[in-house]
C-alpha cells in the first residue's frame, strides 16, 4: 500500500474515502499513522544499529523503579562479556549518566527539558555524539514515566518495563499501553518483599497475562543480585537472537509496533 494512489481504500474505509462533500471542498483519504515521522526516524536509527550489529534495549518504568540501579548491576556482571553503552533520558541533570560513567561505560545524557518521553529524533542526535564502534549492546534508559514513552518507537529491538514491588501489583492493569509494549517485564527491588506484604508477585503476573502478554516476568534485586542471572540470561539470548536476525537480513521491531503494522495493513 502506497498511501498515494488510492490502493489503500478498502471496503472497511470506503465510506470515508468517497463521502459526499460540500461544494468546493475535496476529501483526501490519508490513513497515515500520526507518528509516521517519528517512525521513519526510528527505522533509520534501527538501520544504523543493525549495520553495526548492536542490540538495543529500551528500559521504561515509573520514576524510581530502579532502571539505573539495574543498569549498574548489569554492567558489573557483563563488563567482561560485552561492550556496553548507555543513552540516558531525564528532564534535567547529568546524574544518571555520571553513575554509568563511574562504572567505566560510555553514557550520553539527553535532557528533555519538559518533554515526558524520548523520541527517535533525540536518539538520532545522541547517536551522532557517541562512538559506537565495536559496541555490542546499547541500553536506552527512557524518561521515568509509565505513559508517554510507550507510544514512541526509538529504533530499539526490545522493550523492557520495570515494575518495582514498592509500586502496586495492579500496575499492568492501570497502565496497559506500557506493559503491553514490553518484551520482558522486570519485577525489581524484590529484597523489599518481606516488608511489603501487600504486594503479591502472582497478582502482578496475573495482571500482565490479562493483557495477552507472553513476556517473561523476571524477579530480581539489583541490590542483593538475587534473580539477576535470569535477567542476564534473557539479555544474552535476545542479543544472540538479534545477531541471527541481522545475519538473515531481518528487521526486528519491538513486539507491539510489529503487531500494529500488521493490524493496520490488514484492517484499514
Amino acid at each position: 500500500m502506497c498511501e498515494t494512489c488510492g490502493c489503500n481504500v478498502t471496503h472497511g474505509n470506503r465510506h470515508l474515502a468517497y463521502a459526499k462533500n460540500e461544494l468546493g471542498v475535496s476529501a483526501v483519504t490519508v490513513l497515515k499513522n500520526l507518528l509516521s515521522e517519528n517512525d521513519s526516524q526510528a527505522a533509520h536509527n534501527r538501520a544504523h544499529f543493525d549495520q553495526q550489529k548492536i542490540f538495543v534495549v529500551n528500559l521504561m518504568s515509573a520514576p524510581g523503579s530502579g532502571k539505573t540501579a539495574l543498569l549498574e548491576a548489569t554492567i558489573d556482571a557483563l563488563r567482561d562479556e560485552f561492550r556496553l553503552a548507555v543513552i540516558e533520558g531525564d528532564l534535567e541533570t547529568e546524574n544518571d549518566a555520571e553513575r554509568i560513567r563511574k562504572k567505566g561505560v560510555p553514557a550520553y545524557q539527553i535532557t528533555t527539558g519538559s518533554a515526558c518521553h524520548l523520541d527517535a529524533h533525540m536518539i538520532h542526535t545522541a547517536l551522532h555524539q557517541m562512538n559506537l564502534t565495536d559496541v555490542d549492546i546499547v541500553f536506552i534508559e527512557n524518561v521515568g514515566n509509565l505513559v508517554c514513552p510507550a507510544s514512541f518507537d526509538l529504533g530499539q529491538h526490545a522493550n523492557v518495563a520495570l515494575l518495582s514491588v514498592t509500586e502496586g501489583d495492579d500496575k499492568p492493569a492501570k497502565y496497559p499501553v506500557m506493559f503491553r509494549a514490553a518484551d520482558a517485564v522486570v519485577l525489581s527491588k524484590i529484597d523489599l518483599l518481606p516488608v511489603l506484604d501487600d504486594f503479591k508477585p502472582v497478582l502482578a503476573e496475573y495482571a500482565l497475562r490479562q493483557l495477552a502478554s507472553s513476556a517473561p516476568l523476571i524477579s530480581l534485586s539489583a541490590k542483593t543480585k538475587a534473580g539477576l542471572p535470569a535477567w542476564l540470561e534473557w539479555l544474552r539470548e535476545q542479543r544472540a537472537a538479534q545477531g541471527e536476525r541481522v545475519r538473515r537480513g531481518e528487521i526486528r521491531r519491538p513486539r507491539i509496533q510489529g503487531d500494529g503494522v500488521r493490524f493496520h495493513a490488514a484492517s484499514v
Partner: peptide, 13 residues
C-alpha cells in the same frame, strides 16, 4: 486487531 490506532484517516480541504 483494533484499538491501538492513531490514524489520520481523511482530510477535507
Amino acid at each position: 486487531i483494533g484499538g491501538d490506532e492513531m490514524l489520520l484517516t481523511r482530510i477535507e480541504l
